[in-house]
Design a protein around this nucleic acid. Structure first.
Lengths: 157, 157
DNA sequence: AGAATATTGTTCCAAATGGAACAATAAAGG
DNA sequence: CCTTTATTGTTCCATTTGGAACAATATTCT
């Protein structure tokens, strides 16, 4: 290496030239937070993405059906179904038939599940802070505001 | 439905209460753009995510190795290896041994590959606009600025 | 009420994914 | 120069993923 040229193709150069730049940036930043965290979660707690998403949903709503979780997370129903059955075995959630609708089951999180969620959420929060440390508090607020506005619009489509 | 309660658990409510809110928002907005587009791409052009990422990289750098693409995209090397071999068969890319390093191959995109990339990029751009239509031009610029700053920081870690 | 349609959760299966081991080549260190 | 270590790309294999069909139950329509 005798000249000033980068040894490897540079990802920031890539992100600057891509046609759908906003989407590429969103994807890059999201992955930087989420991918390593899901790897940690799998290694440390033995649960996979759909399983954690299930716990996450159930820790923010008192009761949900599998279908609700599918809608909230965007994961297909069979993924959630598998996650439900594994998390039942592990004792992280409980299931009761819905007396008003024989097709449904009402899912709730156990205290053990909640405890696991807290640990996982901690991991994700730390990684979020690592990555978003580039921004000032004001910038963080602005980013959140813009993302929330966009998310609401996306949810309404 | 006689009262004002939502029929289903609401994703915006979820996004407002989740512990790692910024990460959740990022993930939600990113997925809203990217997931449906990759579904379209698969249906319309028969290529999968790693394959398109390969074309995308090669349409922004004159020559890359598989390793470069792996680093740029964050996908593991075996995924890229498979993508390279399929895209070769389809005639979207070309491969030549690197005369300076017997381990490497130099990858380039063909005009047919470039044409496909343009079509796919169009899809992605349209979906990006659909979702980010919630923001004013000024807000769009601010969002891009904040994301770029964050991405650069993430790339440097 | 009865028939047609929709929804829920599950199972099956084919495809996608990624870690690990591997051979070939290159670079580093004595 | 020779040995050790690192890198590249590939193959193998186990796991994850998601579409599609399915049975059971609800809802809608006539």
């Amino acid at each position: 290496m005798t000249d000033g040229k980068a040894q490897y193709a540079d990802v920031t150069e890539f992100l600057d030239t891509v046609e759908f730049q906003d989407a590429a940036l969103l994807s890059y930043v999201t992955s930087a937070i989420i991918v390593p965290t899901y790897d940690d979660i799998k290694r440390d707690f033995g649960i996979i993405r759909a399983e954690y998403l299930l716990l996450l949903c159930l820790s923010h709503f008192p009761v949900l059906t599998a279908q609700d979780v599918s809608r909230l997370t965007g994961r297909p129903r069979n993924s959630i179904s598998r996650a439900v059955n594994r998390m039942l075995v592990e004792g992280y959630i409980e299931r009761a038939p819905d007396p008003d609708d024989g097709r449904r089951s009402k899912l709730t999180i156990t205290s053990s599940g909640r405890k696991l969620h807290k640990k996982v959420a901690k991991h994700m929060s730390i990684q979020q802070e690592n990555i978003l440390a580039a921004l000032s508090p004001t910038e963080r607020k602005t980013l959140a505001k813009l993302l929330r506005k966009t998310a609401i619009h996306a949810a309404e489509r």
